[in-house]
Amino acid sequence: MITPLENIIIKTICRLLIPFIQLFGLYVIAHGHGSPGGGFQGGCILAASFMLVVVAFDLPEAKRRFSEKMNNIFSSLGVFIYAWTGWMCLLLGANFLDYGILSKILPVNPVMARYYGMFSIEVGVGITVMAIMVSLFLDLVTGGKHEEALDE
């Protein structure tokens, strides 16, 4: 079980580091087109920053920042964004996930519409991977009993 760690050095360093880790995760998601990266990797980095909150502070503090309800909403929101991008292409008259047709609603040519369609689904994948990694971590590390994790 998780034991709360009262160490001011760890807490301060984590408080300083976590925004930069999250910024790097967002960079990896958003710049996955031109450099190594993408939704899966960036989502895992975002989840790692949240796990650092759990390790450095304690579980109630972490759940106050990113509650379980928000986690469940995010995990389905990512799949929703992905499927919704595919359905937009279908509604505009092309095949499912054929992003070139998105140039009808975006002010770009069809090739760049594919670029932004891919960006949209990478964001969806990143959100889902982040939320699922966090929920798997919290459930496995406490055995599913978040509230009793600090009792012992």
Binding site: F40, V129, D139
Partner: peptide
């Protein structure tokens, strides 16, 4: 393999939940 790695993590999580 990029997709296989992430699916592998998910299946490991489900397997650990079953083991618990």
């Amino acid at each position: 393999m990029l997709t296989a790695i992430v699916v592998g993590v998910s299946t490991t999580g489900v397997a650990l939940a079953l083991i618990i």
